[in-house]
Computed example of a mutant assay.
Amino acid sequence: MAAALHRHVDSASGRAFARLARNIFGNVRLDFGTADEDRSRMTSAMLGSCRLTRLEADRHVVFGDHVTAAPEDPDAIKLIVQTEGIASLIQGGLHAPVSRNAVVIYDPSRPYMLTNSTEVRQLLLQLPRHSLPTTAVERLSQPFTAHADKDGMCRILLSLMDSTIHEIDHLDEAGRSSVGQTMIELVRTMIGADLLQARPLTNPLDVLLRRIKDFIDINLERPDLTVSMIARRMGCSVRYVYRAFEDECLTPSEYIWDRRVQKAAVQLQAAGGYAGEISEIAFALGFSSSAHFSRAFRHRYGVSPSQWRKAGMS
C-alpha cells in the first residue's frame, strides 16, 4: 500500500513503510530478514516543531549509521517507547532496553542499531536539536533512559504521547503546536537541561496543569469529560487536579465549559447557516440543551450564538 497524506498526518503500510520511515527519520536502513514487512503500519504527525509517530511492525533491525547523510535529512533528537514487544538500542557502547514503562532518548546522528526482536508497537518523538541546550545534547553521546515508575515527568510524557496520537485528527494546528511544546519542555526537564539556558517546568503542578489543558482540548467533544475522568487519565487524585487550577480564575469544570464555548465560537464563524446548525454544534460539544449553550455563550461573549454567527457571516 502506498504512503498517504491526510491533512497533517502521514501514513504508510506494507512496502511503503520503509520509504516513509526514511522520509521521516533520515537515512535509516531497515532489515526485516525473514519477517513479514507487509504487516508494517505507521502513522506520523507534526506537532509544531516536533513529530510524533506510532508504528507497528514485525521483527526487524534498524541501522542508523548515516542518518543525517544529506542536507534534507532531519536533524532531531529522538525518543522511543515500546508499547508492545521486545526491543533494544545499542549506541556508544551502551545497551539500552526499550520497554513499556520507560523512554529512551538518543541522538540519531550518532551511529546506532535498534533491534526489534519480536513484533513491536512503538511511539517515537522527534524534537529539533536546537530546542535543547547544547549541554543536554552533549549528554546524549549514549542513550538516556527515564522510567515512569521513578520519574513523574516521564509518566506524564508517556500518557501525553499515547493520548495525542489517538486524538491527532481532532487537534487543530494551534493545539498540535501547544502539545508539541509541552513535550519539548518535559524532555528538557527529564534530561536535566541547563537552567541558565532553558525554562523547564520544574513545578509538578505546572506540568500537570499544562497536561490537563492539553488533554481537555483533545477531548472537548467527549460527554464523559469530567474532573474524575481527567484525574484517572492523569494518574492522580481529583483533589490534585483542583490544586493544579488553584492559580487559575476558573475551576477545572468551568475551564472545560469555557473551552467548549470558545471552540463553538470558532465553529460558528465558519458555519454555513442552515437551520439547526447552532444546536448541532452545541450538542456535539457536550451541552445538554440549546438554552444551556445560549446562556454560557452569552456570558462569555455578551451576544447570543445566532448574533455571533450573523456577525461572522456579514
Results as ranks from 00 to 15, higher is better:
H6N: 12
S11V: 13
S13T: 11
A21E: 04
N23C: 12
N23M: 01
R29Y: 15
D31K: 04
F32M: 06
G33S: 11
G33I: 15
R41E: 01
T43S: 09
S44H: 11
S44V: 05
G48Q: 05
S49H: 14
R54V: 14
L55R: 10
E56K: 02
A57G: 04
H60D: 04
V61F: 06
G64E: 06
T68N: 15
A69R: 14
A69Y: 05
K78I: 12
I80S: 14
I80F: 14
T83E: 15
G85L: 04
G93E: 07
G93F: 08
A96V: 08
S99D: 13
V103C: 03
V104L: 00
V104N: 02
D107A: 14
S109P: 12
Y112R: 03
M113I: 15
T115D: 02
N116G: 11
N116S: 09
T118F: 00
V120F: 09
Q122P: 00
P133H: 04
T134F: 12
T135H: 12
Q142Y: 13
T145I: 06
A146V: 01
A148D: 14
D151F: 00
R155D: 15
I156Y: 11
L157G: 07
L160P: 08
M161Q: 03
M161V: 10
D162N: 13
D162W: 14
D169A: 07
H170G: 08
E173S: 14
S177P: 05
T182M: 12
E185T: 08
E185W: 12
L186E: 10
V187I: 01
L195P: 03
R199L: 08
P200F: 09
P200N: 09
T202M: 00
P204G: 04
L205E: 07
L205Q: 07
L208H: 13
L209K: 04
R210F: 14
R210G: 10
R211S: 10
R211K: 10
D214T: 12
D217R: 07
R222H: 01
P223A: 01
D224R: 01
T226E: 08
V227H: 10
A231V: 06
S237I: 02
R239G: 15
R239Y: 10
R239I: 15
Y240H: 15
V241F: 13
F245L: 09
D247P: 04
E254T: 04
I256T: 01
W257V: 08
R260P: 07
V261Q: 06
V261A: 08
Q262D: 09
G272H: 11
G273E: 01
I278V: 10
S279K: 00
E280D: 14
I281E: 02
F283Y: 01
L285N: 06
G286N: 02
G286S: 00
H292G: 03
F297P: 04
R300E: 07
G302C: 00
P305C: 00
W308A: 11
R309N: 02
K310R: 09
A311F: 08
G312D: 04
